[in-house]
Simulated assay, not measured.
Amino acid sequence: MFVKLWMTSNVLSVTSNQPMVEVEQLMRQHRIRRVPVMDGDKLVGIISREDLFRAMPSIFDPSISPEQLEQAGRITAATVMTPSPITVDPATPLEEAALLMRTHKFGSLVVVQDGQVVGIITETNIFDAFLEILGARKEGARIELKVDRSQQAFYAMMQVFKKCQMTVLGMTVFPDFSETHQLVTLKVQGDDMEKLVDSLWAAGLQINRMHTEGKEREEG
């Protein structure tokens, strides 16, 4: 999966000389947590709601004078933005973008193509992709299998699902589950789960855990 499939397009932006009060109003009006800062077509920074909270005094703070509030109202985006933000391309693999965000503790990355801002990828976008990959929004059975590390074992597993006419809605692989096995988790739909279970065991595949229709059981 690539960033372009999950990024938010038509991104709102602000200019570096825009007052912070206007930036805050824009973000609150559109319910966004981060906004790129643009000078013409050039990306020069990014501002988060946390940046705003740190830079702007609270009107409820009794120690803040009217003069300080007035001065705060003249603060511009350039003063508090994170300059020269790290960006990704629409063709960047989603896991690479997620790793960048995790490593640098970013909540989002601006997406740039040929020097133009074309989108933004956020934590929410990453979570949505994760849910889609796991088939979380679709009904079905979730099965964890301990599968030998060999290619033959993985092929045999997929043949069982094909034989039992199961639709695979999502799949993840944890290759370092143990020294001898990888852990494969699948979300599947089909009419005969009992047949599937029997066929998996018959093929020498170990069911670690199975969850279906609100019930969970460990197969051992």
Score class of each variant (00 low, 15 high):
Thr87Gln: 04
Ile75Cys: 03
Arg74Glu: 14
Val88Trp: 07
Ala91Phe: 10
Ala91Ile: 05
Ser84Glu: 14
Val88Cys: 13
Ala98Asn: 01
Thr92Asn: 05
Ala98Glu: 08
Glu96Gln: 14
Gln71Cys: 00
Leu94Tyr: 00
Glu95Trp: 09
Thr103Lys: 13
Ala98Thr: 07
Ala78Leu: 12
Thr76Pro: 02
Pro90Phe: 01
Glu96Lys: 15
Gln71Glu: 15
Glu95His: 11
Val88His: 09
Pro83Val: 04
Ser84Ile: 05
Met101Ile: 06
Met81His: 03
Glu96Phe: 03
Ala91Asn: 13
Met101Arg: 04
Ala72Arg: 05
Gly73Asp: 09
Val88Ser: 09
Glu95Asp: 14
Ala97Val: 04
Ala77Phe: 05
Arg74Leu: 14
Ala72Val: 06
Ala98His: 02
Ile75Gln: 12
Pro90Trp: 00
Leu100Gly: 00
Leu69Val: 03
Pro83Glu: 05
Met101Thr: 08
Pro83Asp: 06
Met81Leu: 09
Asp89Gly: 00
Thr79Leu: 05
Pro85Met: 08
Ala77Glu: 04
Gly73Phe: 06
Thr79Asp: 12
Gln71Ile: 04
Ile86Gln: 13
Leu69Glu: 02
Glu70Gln: 14
Arg74Met: 13
Ile75Ser: 04
Thr79Lys: 14
Thr79His: 13
Arg102Ala: 15
Ala97Thr: 02
Ala77Arg: 04
Asp89Tyr: 07
Ala77Leu: 06
Leu100Phe: 09
Glu96Met: 10
Glu95Thr: 11
Val80Asp: 02
Thr92Leu: 09
Thr82Asn: 12
Gly73Thr: 08
Glu95Gly: 00
Leu94Asp: 01
Gln71Ser: 12
Pro83Met: 07
Pro90Val: 00
Pro93Ala: 01
Pro83Phe: 08
Glu96Asp: 15
Asp89Pro: 00
Ala77Lys: 05
Gly73Met: 11
Pro85Tyr: 08
Val88Pro: 09
Arg74Lys: 15
Gln71His: 10
Pro85Trp: 07
Thr87Phe: 03
Ala78Gly: 03
Pro90Thr: 00
Ile75Pro: 01
Ala97His: 01
Thr87Val: 14
Arg74Val: 05
Ala97Gly: 03
Thr103His: 11
Ala72Cys: 08
Ala78Lys: 15
Leu99Glu: 15
Ala91Asp: 14
Leu100Lys: 08
Pro83Ile: 08
Glu70Leu: 15
Thr92Ala: 07
